[in-house]
Design a protein around this nucleic acid. Structure first.
Lengths: 166, 166
DNA sequence: TATAATTTTCAATAATATTTGAAAGTTATG
DNA sequence: CATAACTTTCAAATATTATTGAAAATTATA
């Protein structure tokens, strides 16, 4: 396969995969581009490569910075901002896990804490308490696992696999 | 908190959480409703509770069936279809993991297999091969962990936590 | 088989999310 | 401080996705 074709397919696939790790298509594509770049890219580079507007490029770059998935680098003597991403997939996974935990898991645990205190002795209230309490317990376990993951090192997967299959 | 308020907040939260596990809002809300229901629900029950159209209810119920997150039950002597969901959060997590692996992870591994064979000796091609090979390796590890999860029992989280913190 | 009950489909519509592009804002430099 | 280089903002336009509702299809029953 030719480089240009491979690159195109990879960027497109990464973009549509984006929604599965909670970011929009363009944001994921910019990330994909940074992953395979051999040196830091400017907003203009990204606009050209992905054929998107300046505003779009800017907004999604800021979102990537916000997620901790890209950072600015400065070149001495230049005013332009350059962007890079960490190329280690484990760092990517860790950052995504961290952000999604913060944005999704923490709020749902908080909500379940609240609603599972619902009053009432009728069947519906009882069932509601049971289900929401179960979900809360599960969410907290997931939270523990994520925390362990976020804090641990790059061999996490290997460790788990080793231990589980022992 | 009153039951009606708790229920409303829980359903709404579950709905907006939906996108984080890859399903749309209404689908997640129907699932939420089935989770706290004390008995099987009909399409009409769901239309009323969520104030949605018949077509919408039908489409999303079918999607839930497709994901293995709901199933039909028949009541003897009745023509209407009733729906239930498994109330164990671990079963939910397992089903979601299974479907998302199939829909997202498997295709990306396949794509990475292909594009990482890109030809060329220039710096860009080399970098591309390295990055996509790393991603592929990572994706395969994730795949292994998911397979273990899907096949294993409900104490998975406890086991891992115990082992990791040992 | 005709009728009634129920489910499914899908084109039209509505709602939501993303993108553009030009103007406004910011910052470095002569 | 004036200008140029660059970045950010945001209202309007576009694109995408979800929803409706009525007609068509299906299925059970008399």
């Amino acid at each position: 396969m030719q480089y240009s074709e491979a690159k195109e397919r990879y960027i497109e696939a990464w973009g549509s995969l984006g929604s599965s790790w909670g970011v929009n298509r363009t944001m994921a594509q910019i990330h994909a581009l940074l992953m395979i770049a051999t040196e830091p890219l400017t907003t203009e580079n990204i606009m050209e490569e992905l054929k998107i507007s300046r505003g779009n490029a800017n907004m999604n770059l800021r979102a990537l910075l916000d997620w901790g998935l890209a950072k600015k680098v400065l070149k001495p003597g230049e005013r332009k901002e350059y962007f890079v991403t960490d190329k280690d997939p484990m760092v990517l996974a860790t950052q995504v896990a961290k952000e999604r935990k913060k944005r999704e898991l923490d709020p749902i645990i908080k909500l379940l804490e609240e609603v599972s205190t619902v009053q009432g002795g009728n069947e519906e209230a009882k069932e509601f308490r049971k289900v929401t309490a179960d979900l809360k317990g599960f969410a907290k376990q997931a939270d523990s696992v994520l925390n362990t993951f976020i804090q641990s090192n790059a061999n996490w997967f290997f460790k788990i696999l080793g231990k589980l299959t022992r």
